[in-house]
Simulated scan of single mutants.
Amino acid sequence: MLAAGSLASVLTACGSEDRPVRLSGGTFTERLPADRARGERLAAEGMDLLRSADSLRVDVEMTADSTEDGPGGRHQEVALHLDRNSNCTGTFDAGPGQRGDLIMIAGGAAYIRFTDESLETIREMAQARGPAVAARVEERIALVKGKYLKVPAGDGSSGRPMMPGAQCDLDEMLGKLDDAGDDGFEGQIQARPATYRYGKHVIPLVEPKADGALETNAIYVAAEGKPYITAFSLEENGKRMTMRMSDYGKPVEAHAPPAAQTIDASELGGGPAGADLFEV
């Protein structure tokens, strides 16, 4: 899953509210401040709900500063509804020429439909490379415009990713959370007053700063009902990521497009399964 490693590093399992402290002469229980005890409890419950989800809707946005990725920086986004059987539907935006819709059924073939805007960008790039490249790419654009490109599972050997591969595997995503371990926050997470983030009423869970400054990295859990994790934000080394989660347990409706709207990538040539279909 896109950004799953960062998710695992931010969302780790939590400990209890009381901590035994041993001193010479005996042991007593140190109680955490109320906001930290509440923060640990909510984070633990939210993690349990997330780990047990059979399906989930995830929207991830990642932005890098211009200092690393050229003027204006780089923005990527993927929005998917996925389950533990590797069914998923959604959209992806990995930059110019790499935007479109995605369908995957039970971890098999993926169906990708590029937006008209992406195809136009690819056309312009090809034209800049000369008549021969432009003619080859123009022919392929004509074949796939408005249609789904069927790509076999596991493909993506070219430099331009044909599909967001492992992003459709909820088991893999949640497995990375399990790998984060159960070391706990050791009292270093704090529940803030309820507020609104990304259109939802939530309780922010943050790592408190000594100077009282607002923390940019936060976990957000639902303020009403069960404390489902609805989002988290992370900023590090000039990169910012927001991951929003919803529709816990809602079945994924993933169906193959009609044959008339599908073209098999293997029929187009240009490497394995047409992997370099639009390489310019």
Rank of each mutant, 00 (worst) to 15 (best):
G5R: 11
S9V: 06
V10L: 15
S16H: 10
D18W: 02
R19Y: 13
P20R: 06
V21I: 14
V21K: 13
V21R: 14
A34V: 15
D35A: 15
G39Q: 11
A44Q: 12
M47D: 07
D48C: 02
S55A: 13
S55K: 12
D59N: 05
D59L: 00
V60D: 09
V60M: 05
E68M: 14
D69V: 02
G70Y: 03
P71C: 05
G73E: 04
A79S: 12
G90K: 13
P96H: 04
M104E: 11
I105R: 12
A109D: 15
T115V: 10
D116H: 09
S118V: 00
S118C: 01
A128G: 12
A135R: 13
A135Q: 14
E138F: 03
E139K: 15
R140M: 04
K145R: 15
G146P: 07
G146S: 08
L149E: 06
K150Y: 03
S158I: 02
G159D: 15
M162E: 01
M162N: 05
M162Y: 01
M163A: 14
P164Q: 07
M173I: 00
M173V: 00
G175L: 05
D179R: 15
D183R: 15
D183C: 07
F185Q: 04
G187N: 05
Q188W: 06
R192K: 11
R197Q: 12
H201R: 15
L205Y: 09
V206S: 07
E207K: 14
P208N: 08
A210L: 15
E215T: 13
T216I: 10
N217G: 03
A218Y: 06
I219S: 06
I219R: 02
A222F: 04
I229D: 14
S233L: 00
E236P: 00
R240W: 01
R240T: 00
T242E: 04
M243L: 09
V252G: 05
V252Y: 06
E253A: 08
A256I: 02
A260R: 15
D264M: 02
L268V: 02
L268E: 08
G271E: 04
G271M: 03
V280A: 09
